[in-house]
């Protein structure tokens, strides 16, 4: 996945806010990248543009040779449905559906019947095989986030985006979610991109990208919680 000089501005005239300012970067297949930065640094915008949820003002987003910025709304939805998965800080499950039904939803939306046992397998993969018939309100936050992960997995996406997936979870639940993400990169060879605030969460990634004022301001490979925290402290000292 490649981003080429992607810019995104909001508003117009005097009130223009530049959220992304000519960002160029790549996410190699099978890598696990964490994106960090202070509030307002543009990390969520970066994620949304990369995932095709938002359209860049200029620049292009390439997923395996397809330019997402050139697609119509419906084609973009179809592409997202087939090749991209998401998890968010708020778990975004449909409250009226059971865990099982929530997981099967993307497949049913694309008019496919889930393969026998696929839904169960996806739930088992995130350790929730015994919670298939529970509704979101009957699950804990960590369990709901794992259902969301299972739902992202069911379509076998090439890229999985996480927007602070552990932000609403305690550290134990967060770790379970992160190890599932890690496994998706290592065992299935999927590209995982995650925005986070948490240095511990970031330390699960292969590399950490630091973002400030809509621009890339640093990169850290094989991060540890300590080195990430140090990088963040440096960034915040600069921006303040």
């Amino acid at each position: 996945m490649q981003l080429r000089s992607v810019s995104r501005t909001y508003g117009s005239g005097d009130t223009v806010v530049t959220a992304l300012d000519g960002v160029t970067l790549g996410f190699p297949t099978g890598s696990f990248t964490a994106v960090m930065g202070p509030s307002g640094s543009g990390k969520s915008t970066l994620l949304q543009c990369a995932a095709g949820l938002d359209r860049p003002t200029s620049g292009s987003v390439l997923l395996g040779g397809t330019d997402l910025t050139g697609l119509s709304g419906t084609r973009l939805t179809l592409l997202r449905r087939q090749r991209i998965g998401f998890v968010f800080q708020s778990f975004n499950l449909l409250p009226s559906l059971t865990a099982e039904q929530n997981v099967a939803l993307p497949l049913r939306l694309s008019g496919r019947r889930p393969a026998k046992g696929a839904v169960r397998d996806a739930l088992a993969r995130v350790g929730l095989a015994d919670r298939a018939r529970h509704r979101p309100s009957e699950l804990s936050g960590g369990q709901q986030q794992r259902v969301a992960l299972a739902r992202a997995l069911i379509t076998e996406p090439e890229v999985l985006f996480g927007d602070e997936p552990t932000g609403a979870l305690d550290s134990a639940a967060g770790r379970r979610v992160l190890s599932v993400l890690r496994g998706m990169a290592d065992e299935d060879g999927r590209t995982v991109v995650m925005v986070t605030h948490d240095p511990v969460a970031a330390s699960f990634a292969d590399r950490v990208l630091f973002l400030a004022d809509g621009r890339l301001s640093g990169e850290l490979r094989a991060p540890t919680a300590e080195s990430v925290a140090a990088g963040m402290a440096r960034l915040e000292a600069v921006s303040c």
Partner: peptide
Amino acid sequence: RDLAVLRLAGATVRQ
């Protein structure tokens, strides 16, 4: 919220 979640899960506007 519900509808946005559906859209995120891959539903088209028409769906």
